[in-house]
Simulated scan of single mutants.
Amino acid sequence: MWKNLSVIRKFVQLLAFLFLVYGSVFVGFYSADKLSGAFPVLSCAYDAKTADYCVLIPLQHQLGHGLGPAIAAGKFTLSLLLPILTTLGTFLLLFILLNKAFCGWLCPLGFFQEVLGMIGQKLRLNRTESLDDNLVDRIRPAKWLMLGLLVILLPLASGLGFVGHELGDPFCQICPSRILTSLFAGQLNQLYIDTSSTGYMILSIIADLLFGLILVLSLTMRQPFCRICPLLAMHALFKKVGLVKLVKNYTSRCDKCGLCAKACPMDIREIHTSKEKDILMPDCTLCGRCVEFCPDKGVMALKYAVIPIKVSDPAYFKERNKAQKRWEGKQKPSRRVKKD
């Protein structure tokens, strides 16, 4: 079982989920609050038991409550950039260690979507395992729009006084992880419709609808929210500096079967078509499934700096493929026949 990279990843994801949702219960709220405050995954500060929270909430607050008002009042100084630079610097230091594997191995929302997907498979729901290439191309810009508009421009505009204070942290107001982690922590308040103002009411309705949509879509397709997550876009900006790498040796050993792209939960067809050695694409979460499902020896590899973590191997592929088919119910486990 432990030779299966996906099983190891699920175990790590489960531990990360428990820590990021309930961690302050074990380390204390003060210690948890000081761990970083700029984590590269969607762990939420609105969860009262969280061990850490993601980089997007301090970034929005610093733009909306610090930098924006100071510029509007004509009191801008370079020192006002220090909190933002500290937040981004902390994020970058953590990101260098694990690169985009924070998405594929540690994010609570990513893990929850995968679990729902597994449930959908077991329920034999009519699932869309791979999206059409044209649809994928249309979806991809959404994460950049979310990052630029909801995380940067609207909070800054709120601080400058161009829009209401409700838009000081608009992404956090609609983030599915806010509702998810709070629910698991026993808090129902993040599901409620906020009627304190029209703006908050609209945002809370959008949040509930988005959360419900993600629940439904996760049962029938792979990683729906990950595709539009602004944190994935933020990761993409710095992916070259991370120590975890995804590489491909495009040699004659690659039979161009396309199984790597088919296995990818983010429908990244470029890992099949690219002839570059570095195939860590902007949408990649470094889950490693493409390496697992590559049947050609040594063609694909997941590495930490120069150290191989997992290298494609025909024997591993054969066993992994069998395990996947058994899970999906497409192949019955072989039975040993007793000899008389």
Rank of each mutant, 00 (worst) to 15 (best):
E292H: 03
A261P: 05
D132N: 14
V115D: 04
G212I: 00
L35S: 06
L156N: 02
A261K: 01
M118R: 12
D194A: 12
V306P: 07
T87G: 08
A48G: 12
L85N: 05
R335N: 10
G104K: 06
H65Y: 12
K240R: 07
Q113C: 02
R336Y: 13
L167P: 00
P108K: 08
N99L: 05
L106T: 06
D133S: 13
Y316P: 08
K49W: 12
V306A: 14
I309S: 02
T87H: 05
P314K: 03
K275L: 15
G110A: 06
S36M: 14
M266Q: 05
G23V: 07
G159I: 07
K318S: 09
K256N: 04
V337F: 14
L15W: 03
Q223T: 02
D255A: 11
T198C: 09
L88K: 10
V311F: 07
G199F: 05
R335I: 10
A73H: 13
Q187N: 13
G117E: 12
Q187E: 15
L78F: 13
Y200H: 10
A185G: 14
M281D: 05
T128M: 07
F91P: 01
T181I: 02
I309V: 14
R127F: 04
K248A: 12
I139V: 13
L15I: 12
F184A: 15
L116M: 08
L191E: 06
F211Q: 00
S204K: 03
Q190P: 02
L98Y: 02
V25W: 15
D208K: 15
A185W: 07
G23D: 10
E166I: 07
V241P: 05
L88P: 06
G186V: 08
L149F: 12
I206N: 04
D340R: 15
A233M: 03
